[in-house]
Design a protein around this nucleic acid. Sequence first.
DNA 1: AACAACAGTGACGTACACGTTAAAGATGCG
DNA 2: CGCATCTTTAACGTGTACGTCACTGTTGTT
Lengths: 165, 165
Amino acid sequence: MTSPASEDQAQAKVARYQIGEVADRTGVTQRTLRFYEEKGLLRPPERMDGGFRLYSDDDVQRIEYIRQLQQYLGFTLAEIKEMVEAEDLRQQIISTFRPDRELPARLERVTRIIGALERQLEVVDHKVEALQEMQGDLRAKLDRVTTRRHELEEAIAEEQSQKKS
Amino acid sequence: MTSPASEDQAQAKVARYQIGEVADRTGVTQRTLRFYEEKGLLRPPERMDGGFRLYSDDDVQRIEYIRQLQQYLGFTLAEIKEMVEAEDLRQQIISTFRPDRELPARLERVTRIIGALERQLEVVDHKVEALQEMQGDLRAKLDRVTTRRHELEEAIAEEQSQKKS
DNA sequence: AACAACAGTGACGTACACGTTAAAGATGCG
DNA sequence: CGCATCTTTAACGTGTACGTCACTGTTGTT
């Protein structure tokens, strides 16, 4: 019974996926998954005996999060790395849940997380603002041009009716 | 009097800037300005006799617009090119302001502009939505973590007062 | 006219974000 | 057990968005 000191929680059904399946599920390539790991965006997943990567549902969620940040929001991988590192810190604190002792250390980590979150929020707020301004501009332009189309349509209709007469 | 058919509007004070000044004003490098021109993001500006580029206020505005799209909104230059091309079409229509004849052609151009604007709006709407969701998530996380900080602070304060007693 | 400072055009270099082989080992299935 | 399929690492290739020379030509100042 010399188990390597792990897996004691009732491991009911912690699903694990190989890289191929994760790639299919998330829509990113295997290469990209390894790349993200290399760059520190993903924590090194477990491995099976042969060395194959085994991803958890958490990992899958995180990959989807990364893609969101990248594709829809235009963050660079470096920025995303900072953001997910903060996320990691949060996870650590949650798992390190011995509710007393080392309170000052815990306080400090929490404070750092708050700082990171605040910085992220600032960036996001700024982007939202810029985008909403754009949205307004675009809508205004669209309105004006749509009006012009109506005018043109009417002008053409008039021309047609004049030809007929 | 065989002028090459141009410049008849009272050209009161159309300011022109050389590339260096434009670079300073907009914060982009000269190299980038030439690059944008090469890629079709900026219309080729006027030149003076020696070949130096002369930018207008319109050009400067456009450069700032491009930077907004790129930096805050995460559009690629290819996407931006599409967007500013639509803008160009609008300008052309405004300048080509002979109010009758060729009405169907004008209608078609207007319709194309509307299509482009609608596509842009769709993209922007999507991004705004994604960002606002993020914003909510971040705020929620921040709330939770801030609560935890208060708890920790109180716990520490308690510990302190116990030491004193 | 001389001269520094600025601007022009290539051409090559670079950082990011992956894609694409290539070669070798691991797994699943009949 | 054999064999196709999958996964591994390593190395090189690619497109985007510029940066960095290097060298030539242009402008403003004295």
